[in-house]
């Protein structure tokens, strides 16, 4: 046994295999629920709503089905008031969800609002209404970060800002999302790159690199001997 270990490469392969198993286990146990996001970075209060006012982020493209909307409310001058969130088809004007959020949510923390299942496809408007009393802010960032999705606050266009919204689905393990990860990673890449490239790289790195290192180590030891 110690002679085999002394050769180095069996130990290398054993540690590499343990690492691969650990990575696979981590990917199986790590469950994530982000379906998609328009990608607005949080830099400011994008909409400060007086009692009764509504902020609507229009024309959000639904690229994956979702079950909840996440927003970040900010208390303005007192505890956050009750809110109402609605999801409406942009063209059809069909209401897909209408949810009340009671007062008492924390300040400046992500707030998950369940909407029920909304299928992928088309565009939606997401509106947040302050049911009062008191003011509330909704966090967001620069309007340019969501160029095809304008923000309206109480019917008036807000040219400067966009709401930072995230759309959440059923929590799924990272491992089960590998196909979609590779599809996403293949976007904005050279023409010859597709999801297949990342499958091939996974195989080459996972199996090829340890094999190459073990071979080099065995050769180095033989050379020394």
């Amino acid at each position: 046994m110690s002679d085999r270990l002394g050769r180095g490469w069996p130990l290398l392969l054993a540690i590499a295999a343990a690492g691969l198993v650990a990575l696979a286990l981590t990917a199986l146990l790590d469950r994530r629920d982000l379906a998609f996001s328009p990608g607005v970075p949080i830099t400011r209060v994008a909409a400060a709503l007086e009692s009764g006012e509504t902020a609507c982020q229009w024309r959000i493209r639904v690229i994956e089905p979702f079950q909840a909307v996440e927003l970040v409310p900010r208390w303005l001058g007192g505890p956050g008031p009750a809110l109402k969130l609605t999801v409406t088809g942009y063209r059809s004007r069909e209401q897909r969800a209408r949810v009340g959020v009671p007062a008492g949510y924390p300040d400046n923390r992500a707030l998950k609002v369940p909407t029920g299942a909304v299928p992928a496809g088309g565009r939606i408007d997401v509106c947040v209404t302050n049911l009062g009393p008191g003011r509330v802010g909704i966090e967001g960032g620069e309007a340019e970060s969501a160029p095809t999705s304008p923000l309206f606050v109480d019917g008036r266009r807000n040219e400067a800002s966009a709401l930072a919204l995230r759309f959440l689905g059923e929590p799924r393990s990272v491992a089960s999302q590998l196909p979609v990860i590779f599809q996403r990673a293949a976007l904005f890449r050279p023409g010859w790159v597709g999801p297949w490239t990342f499958w091939a790289l996974t195989l080459l790195v996972g199996a090829g690199v340890p094999a190459l290192l073990a071979r080099a180590l065995a050769a180095a030891r033989e050379d020394r001997a």
Binding site: G6, R7, G8, L12, I15, A18, L213, A214, L217
Partner: peptide
């Protein structure tokens, strides 16, 4: 034991 040490270093970096 040096080859085993080298193997551990290389495998650790790979992981």
């Amino acid at each position: 034991w040096r080859a085993a040490g080298a193997g551990a270093v290389l495998a650790g970096l790979f992981v």
